[in-house]
Simulated assay, not measured.
Amino acid sequence: MDNKLKIREVCGDYALDIPFADGSVNTIYFNSKRNAENVKRIIEIDGSKPNHATVCEMEEIRHGKWEFEKDICGCAWFTCTNCHKYIIMAKHRLYPYCPYCGAKMEVENG
């Protein structure tokens, strides 16, 4: 088995194939070759262990909801249930994440 990391082009995107000791392969997709090469380099250097040299910070995903407060001149005032900061935006264009705390907003069906 070839244990080398491989980057390949897939429909205009780039895939990084990461082989495991048991013979299985995990594939991660990227929108640029440069991003794929950076992750490949980090895995090769770091041995795929998260540490201070890893490019991104890993943290738990926070969740919240937009709570409607009031209507101001055709725009709505919403408060994030996670950080309690407010934002004014159109009701039909609610952000999927809070720009202040990064909480992922739950989609309300209704």
Rank of each mutant, 00 (worst) to 15 (best):
N82K: 06
R41Y: 15
C56E: 07
G102N: 02
H52P: 04
Y97E: 12
E67R: 10
T54A: 15
V107I: 09
I7A: 00
G12I: 06
K70G: 09
C56T: 13
N26Q: 13
E60T: 06
C75S: 05
N82M: 01
E9L: 06
R41A: 15
R62F: 03
E37Y: 09
F30K: 03
N82T: 03
N26I: 11
D13G: 09
H52V: 09
C98P: 08
C75D: 05
K33P: 05
E69F: 02
G12C: 06
H92N: 11
T54L: 11
I18W: 11
A36L: 02
G102D: 01
R93A: 09
K65T: 09
C75Y: 03
F78V: 05
Y14L: 01
C75A: 03
V107Y: 06
P99H: 06
C101K: 12
F68D: 02
T79H: 00
C73S: 08
Y97G: 04
V55P: 06
E60W: 01
M58V: 15
C73P: 00
A15H: 04
R41P: 10
E60I: 06
A103P: 05
C80A: 01
S24F: 11
V55I: 09
T54V: 12
C80R: 02
I28Q: 13
V107G: 04
E37L: 14
R8K: 08
C98V: 09
D46Y: 05
R41M: 14
I28S: 12
N51W: 07
F20P: 00
H63V: 01
N38C: 11
H52A: 10
C56N: 13
K104G: 03
Y86N: 15
D22E: 03
T81V: 01
H92K: 10
I61P: 00
E37N: 13
A90E: 01
G102R: 04
G74Y: 06
K104N: 02
E69Q: 10
T81A: 00
I7P: 01
C75H: 03
G12P: 07
V10H: 06
I88P: 04
S24D: 08
M58C: 12
K49I: 15
N26G: 07
K33Y: 14
I45C: 08
P96K: 09
T81F: 00
P96E: 12
W66Q: 02
N38V: 10
E37S: 14
E106T: 14
I43L: 14
P19K: 07
V107K: 08
N51D: 15
A103C: 04
D71Q: 00
N31R: 08
N31L: 07
C83V: 04
K104H: 03
I87V: 11
Y86S: 15
Y95L: 08
I28P: 03
K85G: 00
N26P: 01
R8Q: 10
F68V: 00
I7S: 01
N38K: 14
V55K: 10
Y86A: 14
N35K: 11
K91P: 00
I61V: 10
R34K: 11
K40A: 11
L94E: 04
E59R: 08
R41W: 14
Y86R: 15
G102I: 02
E57R: 10
T54F: 13
M105H: 02
E57A: 09
